[in-house]
């Protein structure tokens, strides 16, 4: 009887020993997965942060360029410049009365 009881206790301990690494392995795996996911997310976050920063920089540059273009358009479209080009490069002149076409209003 005593021998049996001792054997049963030993088997139980063996089973527990067998159970413990499996559970720990799962926890370890979960932990590792979490670590990888966390690292991945952090890396992705940093990458996105850089992308946002680049996009913001590009937006600022585009905005500044747009403003420059607006000013340039105003300068290029000034009546003085257009009249000078029309006279000097295209050989045009202000129309006489009979040369004007009126749009029907």
């Amino acid at each position: 009887m005593e021998w049996n009881a001792d054997r049963i206790r030993k088997n139980g301990v063996k089973q527990e020993i067998k159970k413990i690494p499996g559970r720990w392995l799962v926890i370890l795996l979960i932990f590792l997965c979490e670590l990888f996911i966390y690292t991945g997310i952090r890396v992705e976050c940093t990458r996105k942060g850089f992308q946002i920063s680049h996009a913001e920089q590009a937006r600022k540059q585009s905005e500044a360029y747009r403003k420059e273009l607006i000013i340039e358009r105003e300068r290029l479209g000034s009546p003085e410049r257009i009249a000078t080009i029309a006279r000097t490069r295209l050989g045009l002149d202000m129309p006489e009365q009979g040369q004007v076409v009126y749009m029907d209003r």
Binding site: V100, V101, Y102, M103
Partner: peptide, 8 residues
């Protein structure tokens, strides 16, 4: 007087 009128 004679004038040229264009219509859109």
């Amino acid at each position: 007087q004679e004038q040229i009128v264009a219509r859109v």
